[in-house]
C-alpha cells in the first residue's frame, strides 16, 4: 500500500477494463515519472471527453455536436441507413470506404438473458427516421453472433410492412483463412451466398 495520492491513482486505474493491480501500479509510476506537460495533456483529454462528447440526435453515434459528422454531411446518401450495434462498428465500416449512406446506432443488441429487450435499444428512433419515406434501403449490420442475428430478425419483421428493401451483411469465410478450420455454420452460409465468377 502506498500513501494517499499514489494509492488513489492506482485504485482508479485499476477500475479500468483490462487493467489489473500490477498494470495499474506500473501505469501510476509511469505517470509519476512523466513530464508534467504530458500528464496535463492526458488530464485535459479525460475531462474534455466527458464535457464535450455526446450522442448524435439523429443516429446515436458519438459526436461533439447535436448532429454527428456523418449526419451533417450533405454528400452522404440519405436513402440508405446502415444499422449497427455500437459506435465502434461505424468506425469499422467507415474504414472500408465502401459505404456512402448514413448510419443508425442501436446501442447494443437484444439479449433476453442480460435483460436487454427491444425497448432498451434505439429502435423507436429508427422507426421515426424510416417513417418519412426518404429511406429506401435498410442494411442490418448487427454482429454476426446469435444476439446480433436475433436483433436483425426482429428489425426485419418490424419494418416489413413499410415495404423497404432490407438487407443483411453477408457472412462467410474470412479473407486469409483456412477452409478446413471454418465451422459448419459459417461454411454453410458461405455456400449459400456463393457467387458466379462469370460476370
Amino acid at each position: 500500500m502506498y500513501e494517499g495520492a499514489v494509492q488513489n491513482l492506482i485504485d482508479e486505474l485499476g477500475r479500468l477494463p483490462g487493467v489489473g493491480p500490477k498494470s495499474a501500479q506500473r501505469i501510476a509510476f509511469h505517470l509519476l515519472a512523466a513530464e508534467t506537460a504530458d500528464v496535463k495533456r492526458l488530464t485535459h483529454a479525460l475531462t474534455e471527453v466527458k464535457e464535450r462528447v455526446r450522442f448524435c440526435d439523429i443516429c446515436g453515434n458519438v459526436s461533439e455536436e447535436e448532429e454527428c459528422r456523418i449526419c451533417r454531411d450533405a454528400r452522404r446518401d440519405g436513402a440508405v441507413i446502415c444499422v449497427v450495434e455500437e459506435s465502434k462498428d461505424v468506425v469499422a465500416i467507415e474504414r472500408t470506404r465502401e459505404y456512402r449512406g448514413r448510419y443508425h446506432v442501436l446501442g447494443g443488441a437484444i439479449s433476453p438473458i442480460e435483460g436487454v429487450g427491444p425497448d432498451d435499444l434505439r429502435i423507436k428512433e429508427l422507426m421515426a427516421r424510416l417513417s418519412d419515406g426518404q429511406v429506401t434501403e435498410l442494411i442490418l449490420a448487427t454482429d454476426p453472433n446469435l444476439e446480433g442475428e436475433a436483433t436483425a430478425t426482429y428489425l426485419a419483421r418490424l419494418v416489413k410492412p413499410m415495404g423497404l428493401k432490407v438487407t443483411r451483411l453477408a457472412s462467410g469465410l474470412p479473407v486469409g483463412g483456412d477452409l478446413e478450420y471454418a465451422d459448419e455454420v459459417t461454411l454453410g452460409r458461405a455456400f449459400e451466398g456463393r457467387r458466379s465468377l462469370e460476370d
Partner: peptide, 12 residues
C-alpha cells in the same frame, strides 16, 4: 474473426 472455433461456441 479467424478463430478456429468460429460459430461453434455460440449459445444453443
Amino acid at each position: 474473426t479467424k478463430s478456429r472455433f468460429g460459430a461453434r461456441l455460440e449459445p444453443f
